[in-house]
Design a protein around this nucleic acid. Structure first.
Lengths: 138, 138
DNA sequence: CTAGCTGCAAAGTGTTTGCGGCTTA
DNA sequence: TAAGCCGCAAACACTTTGCAGCTAG
């Protein structure tokens, strides 16, 4: 647990890590920024971006593969499936029946060296369905 | 087949459609732009973006779900899997054993209305493996 | 002392949009 | 003629980066 040389878990990084870990869904950098500012009002957006990438690089958080416009971050670094809302962009974890994720990660693509995978279901989240937003972008 | 009211298949749109259909891999807007300019040197990047979105909207091409920075476009609108290269960003079609795509599209996520899905394998493409680029971003 | 980190602001990258003019049904 | 489209350039949204000062080891 001693960490790695030259890496400091500063208050800023801890706050970013906590924000990602405490969120039930997967946050964008902006959303992390908003949450962290409650605790550290002088933190900059640049620091949030740098911290997120650093934490991904250290394996402490994951980055969501899925294809929304914005990048999202994930408290889990395990392979799992995501559900993404086309109306509001929200991303949640989910399960998919009949898909063996371990097998999937072990998939072979001719000539490729495969190192990971992502499954994404796209649709409309409960909130947007109820709000009648179940149409793409208006 | 008759097309829809108020939609014109202009030379620009045809060229964009052809570029997407003729490419073995999935192109970014920029790559489409470069190809189309060979034929229509005065076309603008804005027109390429507008045409691509229009063609997606008409169901003539697909948009790649996967999570690269740039959006990519796909000659097929069917559900299928993609392999994405972490080094060069290239996206190819691929197959995955043991995954029933029809079942996957029919997946249920509690509360969600699911309308599509994407499976993406990430790794390093043959060219980048051979070139020794099989490390993320340098 | 010095490697590492931060806030700030400017620069990048990829995409969208407003507008005047052109084109085609 | 009018609806639709185009090229151009400016505007946008998100992310990255250069820099000077601060901080912890």
């Amino acid at each position: 647990m001693g960490g790695q040389p030259g890496f400091r878990m500063t208050p800023q990084r801890q706050a970013v890590l906590d924000a990602v870990r405490d969120a039930p869904e997967h946050l964008t950098a902006d959303e992390v920024y908003a949450r962290v500012r409650a605790e550290l009002p002088r933190i900059s957006l640049g620091t949030v971006y740098r911290s997120l990438e650093e934490l991904v690089h250290r394996g402490l958080i994951g980055r969501v593969q899925g294809g929304g416009a914005q990048r999202r971050y994930d408290r889990s670094t395990d392979v799992h499936c995501h559900a993404r809302c086309l109306a509001c962009g929200r991303v949640d974890d989910t399960d998919v029946e009949g898909v063996d994720l371990r097998k999937l990660v072990a998939s072979r693509v001719p000539g490729y060296r495969v190192v990971g995978c992502g499954i994404e279901l796209v649709g409309y989240c409960p909130r947007c369905v109820k709000a009648g937003h179940a149409e793409p972008r208006g």
